[in-house]
Design a binder for these strands. Sequence first.
DNA 1: GTCTATACATCGATAGAC
DNA 2: GTCTATCGATGTATAGAC
Lengths: 214, 214
Amino acid sequence: MREKDKIKTEDKIFDSAMKEFLEKGFNGARMQAIADEAGINKALLHYYFKSKEVLYKEVFKKVFVEFFNAIIIKTDQSLSFQAYLKEFIANYIDKLAHRQEMLKFMIWELENEAKSITEYIHNNVDAQKTASNFPILKKIDEAKRAGEIREIDSFHLFLNIVSMCIYPFLAQNIVKNIVKNVDLNNASFRQQRKDAIFDLVWHSIKKEEIDAVL
Amino acid sequence: MREKDKIKTEDKIFDSAMKEFLEKGFNGARMQAIADEAGINKALLHYYFKSKEVLYKEVFKKVFVEFFNAIIIKTDQSLSFQAYLKEFIANYIDKLAHRQEMLKFMIWELENEAKSITEYIHNNVDAQKTASNFPILKKIDEAKRAGEIREIDSFHLFLNIVSMCIYPFLAQNIVKNIVKNVDLNNASFRQQRKDAIFDLVWHSIKKEEIDAVL
DNA sequence: GTCTATACATCGATAGAC
DNA sequence: GTCTATCGATGTATAGAC
C-alpha cells in the first residue's frame, strides 16, 4: 500500500548514475559500475534508459539546472551593487564548493564542446532572453546608470568575474603545482579568493572616491 | 649520404601523433589514425613508442614547453609595470590564439588531474623555485615596493589575471550560449578581452590617482 | 520487470614472419 | 625496421528465458 516507501528501480539507477558520472565523468563512467551500485544488471539499465548517452543527459540536466539556479538566479536583487557583488562572488564560490562534482561535469562538457549545456539552453531558454537569465548583467547596468560604478563594459566585466571565480578551482590540479593549498575544501583559501576578487573588482569600478574628490 | 633529407619514421610518427592528439585529445585520439596519417601500421607505433601513454607524454612535453616558454617567460622585463601588464595580457591571449590546440590539451589535463603537467614540472622545475618561473610575480612585488601599484596580494592578483585571460576561451563553447562572438579567431573579440582585462586590473591597482590627490 | 548469456564493436598491444 | 595477423580486454547493447 505504501508504495512511496519502496524506492523505484528507475530512481535507484538514476541515483547510482549520478554518483558514477559525477565521480568519473562521461568517459570514465562504466555502465557496469552503475548497475552494481544500483544492485541490478546492465540489461536493466538499457531497459529504463535507452543508452549511456541518454542516461548521462538526464543526470546532467538535473544537476545542471540545480546548480545554475543556485548560482545565477538566487542572489538577492535588492542589495546595493557593492553588497550584491560581494554576495554574488561568495555565493558562486560556496556553491561550487558545495557541488564540486560540477567541476567534473564542466570539464567533460568542455571536452565535448558543451553539447549537453548547449542542448539544454537551446531547449529551455528563450534565445532572445539569455542575458536576462543573468541578473547580474542588469544589476551592472543599473549601477552604471545610478552612478554607483564607473562606465565599463557590462558583459566583459561579467565574464571577468565569473572567470576569476571558477578557473582557479577548475584548474586546481594545474595551479597546485605552483601553490599547494588551492582547494575548494580549504575554507581559508576560499575566503582568500572571495576577498581577492571582490577587492580587485570593487577598487576598479566604484565611484565614491572620485565623488569624494570632486 | 644526405640522410637529413629523409624524414625518419620516428619523426613522422611524432608529427602525426601531435596532430591527432591536438585535434582529438587523449581519449579521442586513435593509434590507428596516427598510423594511417604517418603511412605506417600500428605495430610500428609500438615499436618506436611503447604505448599510447608514452607517445602522448612525448608530444605533450614538446608542445607544453614551447607554449609555457612563449607565454610565461618572454614578456619584456624592463618595462614599467603598466606596460608590462598590458603586454603580458596581450601576449597571453595572442599565444593562446596562435596555439589554440593547447586548449584541448589543457582540457584533457584537467580531466586527467593534470598528470602530465604535474609530472613535467616535477621533473624539470626546482620545487623551491616554481614561483620564480613566473616573472610577473616578481614584477608585481617590485611594483608594490616602488609604489607604482597599491598593496595587494601578488599571488591572487596573478591568479586573477590568468583566469580572465584563459577561461573565456577555454569555456568558449559554454559562453557562446550567451554571446555569439566568443572566438579566439575573432581579432575584435580578442582585442576587447585584452582591453577589458587591462582596464579592470589597472584601474584597480594603479596608485597615481591617489598620489595626485595627496 | 528482471535476469543470464552473449553478441558486437573498438582499441591497444604483441607475436612472429620477413 | 616493417609488416600481417591476431590476441585480449573492455564496454555498450540486445536476445530471449523466466
